[in-house]
Write a protein that binds this DNA or RNA. Structure first.
Lengths: 193, 193
DNA sequence: TTTAATTCTTGCCAAATGGCAAGTTTGCTT
DNA sequence: AAGCAAACTTGCCATTTGGCAAGAATTAAA
């Protein structure tokens, strides 16, 4: 059986028996398009494995504008690590872009696993490292890649985003205006086919 | 006694006794200005607490240009988490900008602490969360803040950098050319003083 | 101290992006 | 199906940033 749990909690030191314990602490939770999963200012007490659907993260700047800060696609964990692990108000809001099927685990249960299963905390550390790598890569891309390349990369890595998220919100994620992104899109079509 | 260890390994669940164990697994290592601490392509097997000094991280792009990806200042941990925790070749090179006094701990010893001291792994998780927060903030700044503001922020947060790092390397970190940063600097002087 | 190399500044012009507003398309609601 | 609102495109022009190259300033070396 290949499940979302096997996909996400994948680590050489996590035996199948442990995986069963882990699975049993997750409860299915479904979200509808537009639902707020974590509100800015609130303190997270859980995270969610995203089985199907698309979720966005955003912040509101001083000018009341919404700035998209990330996307979660299926097979990823919907979470605000600083809020959950430092018990601080979340900076970001997490919102379902489409209907979502997720599996929720609360902090207390996570904590049990973390301290009781060595393989689980090994997995956790790898997960954190991967997150850091991705974020570092994103910062680097903001510096070294053109807006066009960043858009192409997003298409490649998360095509669901282009299908489901308004251009304006994609634009803030890429760091350009919606006007520019519209032109970028046009140029790509002209160039590539 | 207020030491670098107390500063860095600060967590409510880390008693003084544990801190002593932790301290004993660190060995002092000094670097000279220009020394390579971790070379791109190599796999890290340790990290370093930076007591005094300044370290930079950089990558080389397709065009042989050096792109600065980060700075480590005193009280921070010099590390490439993906390389150390996933045993993969480092993307970044870490290099001493000034002479440095550091305290080194190797992976094997870290591993002992991580699995034997619950407070230590609690600390580790918080550390990771903070790193993620900082990096997320940096990505956001790249989008929402002007180059001028990013420069002012760097002055405020890590003034040592401005004193010790060539303008060109600061420029790649901020995502502008050295020409532009030079002009930004001029405007700041004109405006503020 | 003199030379040489690096670092930094500046002028000129090109290229990229932004801001605004009008117009078009799309999709939803009644 | 008609009307409406949201999403997207496009033209015009201003602003920002980049690229190049020359020159000034600083630093290090001989």
């Amino acid at each position: 059986m290949q499940s979302i749990f096997h996909d996400i909690y994948k680590h050489p030191l996590l035996p199948e028996a442990d995986l069963q314990s882990i699975m049993h602490l997750h409860k299915q939770v479904n979200f509808n398009k537009g639902d707020i999963i974590l509100k800015s200012g609130c303190i997270a007490n859980e995270y969610y494995l995203l089985e199907t659907g698309l979720v966005k993260a955003f912040v509101i700047n001083y000018n009341e504008d919404e700035i998209t800060t990330g996307f979660f696609t299926d097979g990823e964990i919907i979470i605000s690590p600083p809020s959950l692990f430092q018990h601080t108000p979340s900076q970001e809001t997490l919102q379902a872009v489409t209907d979502c099927v997720t599996w929720k685990i609360v902090f207390e249960d996570f904590q049990q696993l973390y301290h009781n299963l060595p393989g689980f905390r090994e997995w956790g550390r790898v997960w954190f490292s991967q997150q850091l790598f991705s974020l570092k890569q994103r910062s680097l891309d903001m510096i070294t890649e053109t807006a066009t390349n960043r858009y192409l990369k997003l298409i490649k890595e998360k095509p669901q985003v282009i299908q489901n998220v308004p251009l304006k919100q994609i634009a803030t994620y890429l760091g350009v205006t919606d006007t520019s992104l519209s032109r970028i899109r046009k140029d790509i079509i002209k160039t590539a086919g």
